[in-house]
Design a protein around this nucleic acid. Sequence first.
DNA 1: CGTGCTTTTGAATAGTATCAAGGCCGGTGG
DNA 2: CCACCGGCCTTGATACTATTCAAAAGCACG
Lengths: 233, 233
Amino acid sequence: MSFKKIKCSECQCNCFMKLCKTKNIQKMPVGQYFVRKGEYIFKEGDYVTEMYFVQRGKVKIISTGLDGKKHIVRLATDGHILGHRGYGNEIYPVSAIALEDSKICSVDNTTLYELMKINFDFSYQLMMFYSSELRKSELRVKCFAQMTVKEKVIYAIIYIIDTFGLDSNNALNGPITRQEIASIAGTNDEQVSRALLELKKRGLISTNKRKIIINDYETLKSCLNHYGIILHP
Amino acid sequence: MSFKKIKCSECQCNCFMKLCKTKNIQKMPVGQYFVRKGEYIFKEGDYVTEMYFVQRGKVKIISTGLDGKKHIVRLATDGHILGHRGYGNEIYPVSAIALEDSKICSVDNTTLYELMKINFDFSYQLMMFYSSELRKSELRVKCFAQMTVKEKVIYAIIYIIDTFGLDSNNALNGPITRQEIASIAGTNDEQVSRALLELKKRGLISTNKRKIIINDYETLKSCLNHYGIILHP
DNA sequence: CGTGCTTTTGAATAGTATCAAGGCCGGTGG
DNA sequence: CCACCGGCCTTGATACTATTCAAAAGCACG
């Protein structure tokens, strides 16, 4: 696949590598890949050799559970880091799959290690990122432990909005199916359908074909207020 | 409360501060507290000013959910770090409560920051710790999303064993009630009772008074094998 | 305009939470 | 040492919620 590779210094995305000093970035061997919709960036069980960054595109990180049931661990888009779960581990515990054609950058672990060593601010910010990811993940554990299915579906929708945003029609951005909402919420498509129906009846969302249009984001979010949460600050 | 404070260099526990060079540890202002069973070490909403380490004792980290429902996020014992979730955040998202009389050390954030700055290995190891905690937490999300209540109870028991170990009678160590197992598993005491009953019938555990005795740890663990998990390596 | 996939809807089933009552245990004070 | 009290644990019945199965409708794509 031919596509235009760009230099870090010219890149518009706001990824972690931007925290490195320019001179370090310039001599850094950064890989760039073009990944088609549906293709893997890395797979559960692969050896961890690199960290990845989304230059442009949308990606889902999934984990395979009981009887091949897929569970979406996280969504990522422009500037987001991928594969950091694996860092410090031998193999990736999750897979990353492109939701749409995407441009992905990579930095090998050795280079990353060297950069952290010579740039405290870089490694410190990366640590703060891990810390914040841990808080989000533990919040999610609590949500899964206490929410009803309907609430989990709302949680999933809010997560999608907060990650991918809304398009000009206030519809969920990106190729998100009911199946994928179910994989985030930890349920099945039927339940997602039923939950969406109820939200439609309450006027919080509408649907147009398969698109989900958000009429009242704030009220939607307030449905989860009892959990004392600012979900994705 | 009077109790004997000891120097880091004399301390037997294997906490993170051991990764600092001796000369750094010695001049480090480390606080030490004696905390009685049931007392808070820090509370949800407190300002984050320090990191804590368990010198000796047992601690639960809880998060308050819907209608005051408590959810156990983590258990900690000798050498374990506490409060790291808060690091980089203004307030603690969780509370820490002593499960038994415990000795707790503390290091204020400024000191910690300085130590990380001058000791790359220390900050790198701390980052690896965050990375590994993140993997565990996301695994737990998946478990909560896919497991049945009975499996979650087994998950909780294994987690308790892997953290606190077993006593000389192969019984769960520490003052763990059904209520607490329920708070880890995300269910209620009645369901825990029923799940334990089934495990008793299968011969995997026995009970003596309120103590839970583990007869077959390996088979217990294998009940969760379909999740493709080494739970707490 | 089929064809194959996703989505919706309904009905039956299974799983889980809740409520209620009684038993067990540990601690306290007579 | 024993009786009593309060909290923890167990068990059963019931109501509710969620999953599964099945079938039909809707949509996207060639």
